[in-house]
Design a protein around this nucleic acid. Sequence first.
DNA 1: AATAATATTTAGGTAAATCTAAATAATAAT
DNA 2: ATTATTATTTAGATTTACCTAAATATTATT
Lengths: 219, 219
Amino acid sequence: MNLSVSEENYIKSIYKLEEGQDSVTTNALAYELDTKPASVTDMAKKLKEKKLIAYEKYQGINLTPEGKKAALQIVRRHRLWECFLVEKLAFSWEEVHELAEELEHVRSEKLTNRLSEFLGNPAIDPHGDPIPDAQGKMGKPRTQTSLHKSQAKRLEVMAVSDKSAALLEFLTAKGIRLGTQLDVIERYAFDNSIEIKIRNQPAFTISEQVSKNIMVKAI
Amino acid sequence: MNLSVSEENYIKSIYKLEEGQDSVTTNALAYELDTKPASVTDMAKKLKEKKLIAYEKYQGINLTPEGKKAALQIVRRHRLWECFLVEKLAFSWEEVHELAEELEHVRSEKLTNRLSEFLGNPAIDPHGDPIPDAQGKMGKPRTQTSLHKSQAKRLEVMAVSDKSAALLEFLTAKGIRLGTQLDVIERYAFDNSIEIKIRNQPAFTISEQVSKNIMVKAI
DNA sequence: AATAATATTTAGGTAAATCTAAATAATAAT
DNA sequence: ATTATTATTTAGATTTACCTAAATATTATT
Ligand SMILES: [Mn+2]
Ligand SMILES: [Mn+2]
Ligand SMILES: [Mn+2]
Ligand SMILES: [Mn+2]
């Protein structure tokens, strides 16, 4: 199956939005891809024709097994390139998503597998997300719990779900990265903000929007 | 100046064909890009509009200084990725051109410069071609002499001008790579074939098509 | 159940990059 | 200097991936 760059971006976004939800909505996909609902409907017809998605008018979109397989290959390439950029070229985690968005479209299994090998077959990317293997097998995310929902007092940061440079820069500035351990000092019911503390540094408060996107594990 | 992938491929091909010639012909460019002359005329108008080429109906095509600058950046990315693939991912020289043809279109100066640094700022690519620096400065090819034209008896292979997998595989099979030293045993006027010998190995004969594409330096 | 609000699709269009076939210009051969 | 050949351009289509505006479905609210 030969996919265009645009088709690949759709497939990848559908895969992302499908998680949790039982089907992906036209508007959600348009928003995710920064395009218009009418364009999504057009592409949905095309991807259905190619048997990569199940789609009936007004019924939402789901990947077929074939579509999911394609999605996992794209995700694999995306995350491997992110690793490369961070580990070999010393990019920071907020710079790599955008570049990987382009590099992911170079379709060569040999290149992908050689790159993976070169990086030591990494299992997670710079944002804590698992990397599918050559067969498309991917471990479950190491945790599904956000700092926002977690009840624990002492936590370790396992992943970040929003990959915008804005959030990632903010976290870096606050000293929060993968593996960072922190204590929850206080939760404020009024705005769901959380006061946290890293090691011996002074405590500080983060908003709900931030804590929702930090995935944690109790320690 | 924001160029599409297609525009970049045109610019790069014009740059390549311009060398030696004083201008590039519609048909030559169509052949090089594996497209039709009518398409070239269309694109010529567009690139002229963007001031990347000088073009008048029936008069052939030349890069403007701006166009040349753009071309050198693309060539730089192409050749750096080729180095990466060969030196870090253990690809052979006949596999890398096609992959670099795609990777070259990821436009990020930061990525390009970091990649160059990671590779130790290489000066030549796996085919012996010089790599432009960040400013677009490129050393002259180390030699302009083909094995076909050279009069010398003892030579060193400096570059290969045809990047087709067919030729490169052939050369590899015959034990010819960059830096290989060889002796010319005989030149046959009938078909311009040449008998050569590498070290202690038995001599063999190569055709004119092959010897034309091997760039050499007398030693 | 009727109406309002929201979501989705359709109709009809645009821009980029290609194509084929036909027309025209430039060059080579008589 | 004609004529033939080759090169190039134009005219008119096609495909992909978008768009806006209008129509239609679905869902939520009275
Ligand atoms: Mn992408
Ligand atoms: Mn990532
Ligand atoms: Mn290319
Ligand atoms: Mn090369």
